[in-house]
């Protein structure tokens, strides 16, 4: 490597001479004890890259298990007028159970259908009361309409879900394997 390659200015020769002298001004030193270094490295080996795989995969597996668990449960989340329903209904879970045309299962399904009907009736009554209450607290006719529409939408969705479940129950009880 020739010095002129680094020069870009008439004074650079002097600057480079000084800089090179500075770079080469190195005091003596003790040689490295290789055996001690190797012993140290073997006492505390480096972290293997594989450990990073565990650090990522374990939380991901845990998240997947949680997701699977939550998918077996039914969630209903409402944001204003919009309702999100996620997960499996009790009936959908029951569909995975072999029926074997057992009378006990049919009986259980009938009980569940009864509960669904009761829930439907309670929901209708609750929506009706909420709509009446909204008449008192709404600041205007327009506000009340908005609340009433939201309640109606929620009721429709809940009703649809319940009737869908009831429909499935009936099909299951009648031995239809493809509800």
């Amino acid at each position: 490597m020739s010095e002129h390659k680094d020069q870009n200015h008439p004074d650079d020769a002097r600057v480079l001479e000084g800089a090179r002298a500075w770079c080469e001004d190195v005091m003596g030193y003790a040689p490295l004890d290789v055996d001690a270094l190797v012993a140290k490295a073997r006492r505390a080996p480096a972290a293997k890259p594989g450990r990073w795989v565990w650090r990522v995969s374990v939380p991901m597996a845990a998240a997947a298990v949680l997701l699977l668990a939550f998918s077996q449960v039914r969630f209903t989340v409402s944001f204003g007028d919009t309702t999100f329903v996620w997960g499996r209904t009790a009936v959908e879970s029951l569909e995975d159970t072999p029926l074997d045309a057992s009378s006990e299962v049919v009986e259980a399904l009938a009980v569940m259908a009864g509960r669904l009907n009761a829930l439907e009736a309670a929901a209708l009554e609750q929506n009706s009361q909420l709509a009446r209450l909204a008449q008192y607290v709404a600041r205007s006719e327009r506000d009340w309409q908005r609340v009433a529409n939201g309640l109606a939408q929620r009721q429709n969705m809940e009703t649809f879900t319940r009737y869908r479940d009831v429909e499935k129950l009936i099909r299951l009880a009648s031995g239809d394997s493809n509800p």
């Binding site: 600057v15 000084g18 800089a19 002298a21 500075w22």
Partner: peptide, 13 residues
């Protein structure tokens, strides 16, 4: 003069 130059460069480095 050159010693002085080296001194200045070293100080600046």
């Amino acid at each position: 003069e050159r010693t002085e130059t080296l001194t200045r460069v070293w100080q600046r480095i």
